[in-house]
């Protein structure tokens, strides 16, 4: 697929349809992949990569890219198209300035899960018929492919591209995913157990801001946590701010706008399952106000900027809750 993508990108650059290409390039290690902008055929040949580790959602970068002159070619996986659409809806991306090529999605791999098997000194990873052949400086090792899949891919919600100008490969369907399983499990715990779970998780936060910086819904010109005028600005980890304010406010800010792309948990260096907070909001919205998938379209009203006269009262939290 990588070859097909490079070929198509070169064509579009050559005939002037686009001025830049946004994709991924390899870093220091084979699994260390980062989003990148390419402007020439040479750069594409040299650096462009699309493999089992290109999990990063590039749609957020289009906010900045479309503010520049010229048109951008973006390769979007199905999950990325939702984020893209949501940003178009919020007028953050100029749709006219982007040529979207839909590409097949994951499952993508999680290097941490490979490392967790005690495999170190990794040079490269190949998928041979759903068995991973891992080249290391100590020789080749193997493990089953599905044991190394990213958490966000394991609970994939959709293989469908909600927006594209052309496709490379096949379009898929919206999947019947099990993504709310963990939320439900937590809901069925006692308040003390939930509190302990979250205190345990959130107290690990080092406020690196990776979750915020990667989030395609967090594209504010000036984040409230950086803005002294907001009254809740806070840049360094301080006492219980992360547990009590930062992650709750961040989740609330993206409630109804989060497409559940799962990037927050993917990039968290402390492995905090941040996506559960977002999924809790998504699940509540689906249950209380009707099924809603952010980014599925660019016209519907977001649940928090909409209402029904017979919406439930907040007391429903008492009524349906456990304990």
């Amino acid at each position: 697929m990588q070859e097909a993508m490079i070929k198509r990108a070169k064509e579009l650059l050559a005939d002037g349809s686009v001025d830049r290409v946004i994709g991924w390039k390899r870093g220091e290690f084979a699994y260390d992949i980062t989003p990148a902008v390419f402007t020439s055929a040479e750069e594409l040949d040299r650096d462009f990569v699309c493999d089992d580790f290109t999990a990063a959602n590039v749609s957020k970068y289009l906010v900045k890219e479309t503010q520049k002159e010229g048109k951008v070619l973006a390769f979007l996986k199905p999950c990325d198209t939702y984020s893209f659409n949501q940003l178009v809806k919020e007028h953050r991306i100029d749709r006219e300035k982007v040529y979207v090529i839909g590409i097949e999605g994951g499952p993508k791999l999680d290097i941490e899960k490979i490392r967790a098997k005690g495999i170190t000194g990794i040079l490269g990873v190949r998928n041979e018929d759903y068995t991973l052949k891992i080249e290391t400086i100590y020789g080749t090792q193997t493990m089953p492919f599905y044991e190394a899949v990213l958490g966000k891919c394991a609970s994939c919600k959709s293989k469908k591209h909600v927006v594209f100008d052309e496709l490379i490969g096949e379009d898929g369907d919206v999947l019947d995913s099990n993504r709310f399983e963990m939320v439900e499990k937590l809901e069925n715990m006692t308040a003390q157990e939930r509190f302990d779970f979250w205190r345990d998780q959130l107290s690990k936060c080092i406020r690196c801001n990776a979750c915020r910086n990667v989030c395609p819904a967090c594209t504010c010109e000036n984040c409230v946590f950086d803005n002294p005028k907001s009254g809740i600005d806070n840049k360094a980890p301080a006492d219980s701010f992360e547990e009590n304010m930062f992650h709750i406010i961040r989740a609330f800010h993206v409630a109804g706008r989060c497409t559940d792309c799962g990037e927050c948990s993917r990039v968290c260096p402390q492995h905090i399952p941040l996506h559960l907070l977002n999924r809790k909001f998504i699940k509540d919205i689906n249950e209380l106000y009707g099924e809603y998938q952010a980014g599925a379209d660019t016209t519907s009203r977001a649940p928090l900027t909409d209402y029904n006269k017979d919406d439930c009262e907040p007391s429903i939290v008492h009524e349906r809750g456990v304990e």
Binding site: A191, E193, F197, I248, A251, D284, L304, P314, V317
Partner: peptide, 13 residues
């Protein structure tokens, strides 16, 4: 407020 209260409940408050 419904969503916020539900979230606080989810966090064990």
């Amino acid at each position: 407020i419904t969503l916020l209260y539900s979230m606080l409940d989810f966090l064990g408050i």
